[in-house]
Design a protein around this nucleic acid. Structure first.
Length: 232
DNA sequence: CCAGACGTTGTT
DNA sequence: GTCTGG
DNA sequence: CCAGACGTTGTT
DNA sequence: GTCTGG
């Protein structure tokens, strides 16, 4: 799955990679993005242009009476999102990309203990999560925009750590994912596990657990990045 | 017809 | 144990 | 996802 | 909003 991630990409890099306007200085580095917090997404507008926007992480279906459901809809299963009532309209018309530098997964160990891992690309390039966004009209008249990250089965590398992982798209897939023209089969074809050999995983200190701790210290590895030989 | 659910994760 | 807030 | 709260009364 | 169960 994906319950925490990082994004420390410059506005310039974001602009170039996603072909979108991003104001310099408007995207502070984040090392511990948690559900409910603002997240930068990239979406396509009706006129075909792309837009970067800040939305809350945790999707609130437009018909929901209670916005707190967003708290649990931080992920959407890629296998079923197209049909599920909570996600299908967003899947049809409101797909987005969620730029990230990497993400965290907690591996269950013996007993109740958990080991956090930081997972990133092998070459330092950004990751782009496949996401859905939604709009919710509050009774008080305000609108809240939210998003969820699609998940898929783990690749070989992730398997020992966790049984779900976020859907990560390559730049060649951005257009098809964002375009309203893409058909369901075409979209489904994009929602596959990111290749093992293109990611790097390393265990990190439990500092990640401290809410409000959002500093590069979180990324200090406990040991060298693990290529997958053994990681228990 | 109306009422109530609608989700993911992990855990048991 | 379970819920809420970040 | 994890961390932290989870309650009432009265008093300052 | 839309579907399912009663």
């Amino acid at each position: 799955m994906c319950g925490r991630f990082t994004c420390f990409l410059s506005a310039e890099l974001l602009s170039q990679l996603y072909r979108v306007q991003v104001e310099p200085g408007s995207v502070p580095p984040r090392y511990n993005i948690a559900p409910s917090q603002p997240v930068l997404i990239v979406r396509e507008l009706p006129d075909g242009s792309r837009q970067a926007a800040w939305v809350h992480w945790g999707l609130i279906p437009s018909w929901s009476k209670d916005p707190s459901v967003g708290g649990s809809l931080i992920n959407a299963r890629s296998e079923t999102a197209a049909e599920k009532p909570s996600f299908r309209s967003a899947f049809r018309r409101r797909r987005c990309l969620i730029p990230a530098s990497g993400f965290y997964e907690w591996q269950k160990k013996e007993g109740k203990s958990k080991q956090p891992w930081f997972i990133t690309s092998d070459d330092g390039r950004p990751l782009s999560f496949a996401g859905l966004w939604e709009q919710w009209h509050s009774p008080d008249g305000s609108d809240i925009e939210t998003c969820a990250i699609l998940t898929t089965s783990p690749n070989e590398r992730m398997e020992p750590i966790h049984h779900r992982m976020p859907v990560i798209l390559a730049p060649e897939s951005f257009r098809a994912w964002l375009s309203p023209e893409s058909c369901p089969d075409e979209l489904q074809g994009l929602l596959v596990p990111f290749p093992s050999e293109r990611m790097k995983c390393y265990p990190v200190r439990t500092l990640v657990n401290r809410p409000g701790n959002d500093s590069p210290e979180l990324l200090i590895p406990l040991k060298e990045p693990d290529k997958g030989e053994d990681n228990q």
